[in-house]
Design a protein around this nucleic acid. Sequence first.
DNA 1: AAGACTGTCAACCGCGGAGAC
DNA 2: TGTCTCCGCGGTTGACAGTCT
Length: 263
Amino acid sequence: MGRQPCCDKLGVKKGPWTAEEDKKLINFILTNGQCCWRAVPKLAGLRRCGKSCRLRWTNYLRPDLKRGLLSEAEEQLVIDLHARLGNRWSKIAARLPGRTDNEIKNHWNTHIKKKLLKMGIDPVTHEPLNKEAVSEETPSHLQQSGNHCLQENDSVIHSEENLSSPTENCSSTDDHDSLLLDNICNNESLMNSLWIDEAPLVNVSWENQTNGDNIDHLRLPSLEDNFSWLLDCQDFGIHDFGYDCFSDGELNVLSSLEMGEKH
DNA sequence: AAGACTGTCAACCGCGGAGAC
DNA sequence: TGTCTCCGCGGTTGACAGTCT
């Protein structure tokens, strides 16, 4: 017996999301929290399947998402995690705050995979394709990021000759992230606990607030915490949505945030 | 200037797992 | 226990942008 389609194919829109659709989805989730995705399109007035809504939300609209390319430290962590977890992108993404599995998967396929191949490392096995060549050409931290990294007494070393990255001129925030991730990578006991602990390290507050049955517990983190990301969005900024979907209180927060941004 | 080629990434598809009945 | 529904995951596709010739 064939599997039923996740939604009624008739009348279901596909393809890129419009600002209007984004607005509806955001408005719905801000109001109701994440509930049964199957019901979301109908309740939110979207001609999309629930799956598409979930994907849009988790990969693009979620307030806790980071934007932009992965930092060097994040990239290194992805390599390390991939060496241990393989293509389990959701598990890898769970260890990188603000990153989605789709984003990491894409980044892996478009950047890291090629980079590793260039270094003479098999991106699947993380073993050197040509051990001699690699030992001469590959920066030490990359060699370690194979199956050996994070083993006893190992540390992830970032040298000046590190992989070139679009984020070479990273901001102080990136530097801070790098240091933080380095420290995590270098802390064996912490790393071990990360591997063992299946619970995601990120979005704890978010998860906590969306797991309850009571709708009050489904609310998102505070508006002040989360609207700033909307203001940062260039592609579909809050102005593109219009303000009609927000309450007066929310608008006040938005206004104050905007004032803050401008100063 | 224009067509071909390449890279990027948002979105889709199909499958498997988990839970409800 | 078997069936059904829903959710989430990983692989893949396709549109668009940028670069090359």
